[in-house]
Nucleic acid binder design. Structure first.
Length: 544
RNA sequence: GCGCCCGUAGCUCAACUGGAUAGAGCAACUGCCUUCUAAGCAGUAGGUUACAGGUUCAAGUCCUGUCGGGCGUACCA
């Protein structure tokens, strides 16, 4: 529809004698207030200055030259300072609704990202402990944006990047070793900054079960580290699966050392004069890119900082031929992003293919108070515990319901409420209610002919149809902004429109033609709800 | 100090990247279950969009400054 309007407006402008170059981008928008029509354009206002004319006059002339198809547009009005408002004809709505019903589960899919081969990297927590609430937002956002990209036509690979080599992992191994010794009655202390979580003890216990005391004389933590990593990764995968997330690949940072990418990266930097030695360390001249300090790439101990592998990793991704590499990370990592971009730019890759989704922190609210967490101090809340308490659907929904760019307050009490306070159920309830009605219709009536949708003339029916038709736009916007909460906002409006219809119009017991048409309408709503909830990774139950 | 993000109803947040009278949920108040699911609906109340300037036909949205909050500013990840 937008395109159609743009076309006829363009033609009308040319008819008026406006030159091609003078025509601005023709913006079509949906007015907030439905009494202003279904679509509106501001071209007349945008043209006021270049044409040195009153916007309302321009609008009048434009409308005079406009050739609208009555099967699509029923009225054109000029309003306010010079808006041109279009109202869709009912025939257009019925035709579109019919198409929606035919598309069913496909309705809402778009082509913005057709042919795009995308890699979404998310979670990427090192295997030092179970996933916590903090990781939850990352996981759910990443997965949902991946789904949005898929809905707009992209081929998406989900990747989990991890590092099992650093200091943290050694400390983890030592922590498990200490707990193992304690299990066998030996005296052993946790290392400095060791992991205090109960899960470490569990891993140690399972080692005792499996190996008895045969590991008593292990010289270092290596074996314990490996055991811990395997056990923890196992748990992480289970947690993700529970949240409806399946990774396509796990990328070990170590690969980058083994295949020489790390060394090559440093070499290239040196050749370009962007890396140098100082105080036994290797530095990246980030001052060249406007930072106040240079950045260490390799510590004087010989160990690289995370920044170097980060750059090599992104080069690796681009080397694999992805058109879009999307990173999902918390606001605390934002500073590394420009370095990575500059790094791969220096290496000769197209940095515009790398995009980032930054989200703000999550505050867990328990008993009305914010709950402070730290992984090492074991006073964290794991994602599993959270899901045990409030359920999987609610967990996903809460992580998605706010713009990524704003702090998220996760109120456990509110999430636990089965009823009124919990916004998830509003959507699911609408779907279940439709299914219930359709079951009833199935029992009492059989339809042989095609439904005549043109009997749908009630205000709330028309509003509902229009809302459904805007679903593809909502998906497209959510995808391009990487903001899943837009889908939630949309679904809330849709569910609300449906409930209004439900109260205004009956289905069961009406004349057969009306019952049939309204059943079709309800089916369409259910399909859109399912599709939307599907994007969010949330179930659409048939009964509640 | 510097960089990034944020400041909207009592609380948690929207607002289609600059559009028309700033909207939801929760909390408060008033009604509604012999009729397809009341996990619902209708209504009332609640605002100088932190503050001060600026840009233009039009600013919650863009620019500058001030105040307030979060994060970063490591040879930690």
């Amino acid at each position: 529809m937008d395109q159609y309007l743009q076309n006829i407006i363009r033609k009308a402008l040319i008819e008026m004698g406006v030159s091609e170059e003078a025509i601005p981008e023709i913006q079509i928008e949906t007015p907030r207030d439905p009494s202003h029509g279904d679509s509106a354009t501001n071209v007349a206002m945008a043209l006021a200055k270049p044409l040195r004319n009153n916007p309302r006059k321009i609008a009048e002339e434009l409308v005079k030259n406009l050739k609208t198809d009555p099967d699509k547009i029923s009225s054109v009005e000029i309003a306010g300072p010079g808006f041109i408002n279009f109202r869709y004809s009912d025939n257009y709505l019925y035709a579109e609704l019919k198409q929606l019903l035919e598309m069913g589960n496909e309705f809402g899919k778009g082509s913005d990202n057709r042919g795009v081969n995308a890699l979404v990297e998310f979670v990427s927590a090192n295997p030092t402990g179970p996933l916590t609430v903090g990781h939850g937002r990352n996981a759910v956002l990443g997965d949902t944006v991946a789904r949005l990209l898929e809905w707009t036509g992209a081929e998406v690979q989900r990747e989990y990047y991890f590092n099992n080599a650093g200091r943290q992992m050694r400390v983890l191994g030592q922590s498990v070793q200490a707990r193992y010794l304690q299990q066998l009655g030996k005296k052993a202390d946790l290392p400095e900054g060791g992991y205090e979580g109960e899960y470490i003890v569990d891993i140690a216990k399972s080692l005792v079960e499996e190996h008895g005391d045969s590991l008593l004389n292990e010289a270092d933590e290596k074996l314990f580290k490996e055991k811990a990593e395997a056990a923890i990764f196992d748990e992480i995968k289970k947690t993700l699966e529970r949240m409806n997330i399946v990774m396509d690949s796990f990328f070990n940072e170590n690969t980058l050392y083994e295949d020489g990418s790390i060394d090559q990266t440093i070499e290239k930097f040196r050749k370009k004069g962007l890396a140098y030695d100082k105080d036994g360390a290797v530095w990246f001249k980030t001052t060249e890119f406007g930072k106040d300090k240079d950045t260490v790439l390799i510590k004087s101990t010989g160990e690289p900082t995370y920044r170097l592998p980060d750059i090599a990793y992104h080069a690796n991704k681009l080397e694999r031929g992805f058109d879009l590499c999307l990173d999902v990370f918390g606001a605390d990592h934002i500073d590394t992003y420009p370095d990575v971009l500059n790094g791969i730019d220096v290496l000769g890759y197209d940095k515009s293919k790398v995009d980032v989704l930054v989200y703000q922190f999550v505050t867990l609210v328990k008993d009305g108070k914010p709950y402070k967490m730290s992984t090492r101090k074991a006073n964290f809340v794991t994602l599993d515990e959270l899901m045990d308490e409030v359920g999987e659907d609610v967990t996903r929904f809460f992580f998605l319901m706010r713009s990524p760019n704003t702090h998220l307050e996760f109120d456990v009490a509110q999430a636990k409420e089965a009823g009124e306070k919990n916004p998830v159920f509003y959507l699911q309830y609408a779907h279940a209610r439709i299914q219930s009605i359709l079951r009833k219709v199935d029992e009492i009536a059989e339809f042989s002919d095609m439904a005549d949708l043109s009997v749908l003339t009630h205000d709330s029916e028309i509003t509902l149809i229009k809302k459904m038709l805007s679903f593809p736009d909502a998906v497209s916007l959510a995808a391009s902004h990487r903001e899943p909460h837009r889908v939630i906002t949309y679904l809330n409006e849709l569910a609300s429109n449906f409930t209004t219809f439900y109260h205004d119009c009956r289905i069961v017991g009406e004349d057969k033609a009306i019952m049939q048409a309204r059943s079709e309408l309800a089916k369409a709503v259910a399909a859109v709800l399912r599709n939307g909830l599907g994007i969010l990774g949330i179930t659409a139950p048939d009964r509640m």
